[in-house]
Amino acid sequence: MKQILLSVVLAFTLQANAQDDAVIKDLAPVCADFDSLHTAEAWKAKTDQLAVLKEKYPESWMTVYYYAYSCIQMSYFEPSLAIKDAFVDQAEEQLAKLEEKCPLKDEVFIMKAMVANARIGADPENRWQKYGKIFEDNLKAAKAVNENDPHIYLLKGIATFYTPKMFGGGAKNAKTYFEKAQAKYDLITNTDVDKPYWWGRSTCNYFFGEIAKELGK
Rank of each mutant, 00 (worst) to 15 (best):
K44V: 02
N117S: 15
H38G: 08
E179S: 13
K180N: 15
K44S: 13
K133L: 15
Q90H: 08
V23S: 07
N126C: 00
A22K: 05
P124A: 08
P124F: 11
H151I: 04
A40W: 03
M62P: 00
D186W: 10
N126M: 04
D26N: 11
E99Y: 02
V88W: 06
G169L: 09
K217Q: 14
Q49N: 14
K175G: 03
A159I: 00
F178H: 07
E136K: 15
G216Q: 14
D20I: 05
V64G: 01
L95Y: 04
L37T: 11
A16E: 12
A11W: 09
G170I: 04
P124N: 12
S70Y: 03
A91I: 02
D194N: 14
K54N: 15
Q19T: 15
T189W: 02
Y69S: 01
Y153D: 14
K175N: 14
A122H: 08
D20F: 09
P58N: 09
G121D: 09
I72S: 04
F178I: 01
N117W: 08
L215V: 12
A16F: 11
P164G: 12
K165S: 14
S70D: 09
P164R: 07
T189R: 13
F161R: 08
V115T: 07
L53D: 05
T163K: 12
D35Y: 09
C204L: 00
K97W: 02
N205A: 06
L139K: 03
G200Q: 03
K165F: 07
L154F: 11
D186V: 12
T13P: 02
G132V: 03
F135N: 07
A113L: 07
L27N: 11
L6P: 00
Q73T: 01
C71R: 13
T176R: 14
D33C: 05
F167V: 05
I72M: 04
K133S: 14
V52C: 08
M74F: 12
T39K: 08
F178C: 08
P79H: 02
E100T: 09
Q73I: 00
Y57P: 08
V23Y: 10
C204Y: 00
A212P: 06
Q49C: 10
D21M: 09
E107I: 01
A113V: 08
V108K: 02
A96W: 09
K130M: 01
E136V: 04
H38C: 01
G216D: 15
G132L: 01
T63M: 08
D35S: 11
Q19C: 06
T47C: 14
W128S: 10
K2T: 10
S60R: 11
Y131H: 07
D106H: 09
Y76I: 03
T39N: 02
I152K: 10
K97R: 06
Y67P: 06
Y69N: 02
F161Y: 15
V88L: 02
Y197S: 04
Y206D: 07
C31L: 13
D106V: 02
R201F: 08
T176M: 10
P164C: 11
Y206H: 05
A96T: 13
W198F: 05
I120R: 10
E92V: 00
F167W: 13
V108D: 15
F135A: 06
K213I: 05
L155R: 03
